[in-house]
């Protein structure tokens, strides 16, 4: 599968990654190489094979519904760049 530069731009936007023009060529080639591998996988006949959700042949252990965490706000907020009144502050997200 060949990748266009616009594909890379769309992926970069979705992933919120800034890719400069000079990096763009290299990234296109590298992701293209990964997709070539995926193409080979896609080419295999998987008729009748159940989709796999996880490589381990195990099932999820469930947790009892108990509150085990207590308020640790001060600690958890200590490296946030901006806080106020117990809130994390982020660049305004409403238009």
């Amino acid at each position: 599968m060949s990748l266009e530069r616009t594909d890379i731009e769309k992926l970069a936007l979705l992933a919120r990654i800034n890719i400069s023009d000079s990096e763009s060529q290299q990234v296109t080639e590298r992701i293209g190489a990964v997709l070539n591998l995926v193409d080979q996988l896609q080419a295999q006949d998987t008729e009748g094979v159940e989709p796999m959700a996880h490589p381990m042949d195990a099932t999820q252990i469930l947790r009892a519904d108990e509150v085990t965490e207590s308020n640790d706000r001060e600690n958890l907020m200590s490296n946030a760049p901006a806080t106020e009144e117990g809130l994390f502050l982020v660049p305004k997200v409403i238009e």
């Binding site: 469930l62 009892a64 706000r73």
Partner: peptide, 30 residues
């Protein structure tokens, strides 16, 4: 294991898992 309890002070019921701190893993509530 954070409490589900409404009307509390902001971010007092938010643990490292809820905040997506690196290295944390989810465990499903039965």
């Amino acid at each position: 294991g954070s409490a589900v309890d409404f009307g509390q002070d902001p971010n007092t019921n938010a643990s490292a898992i809820d905040l997506a701190m690196p290295g944390t893993l989810p465990v499903v509530n039965a």
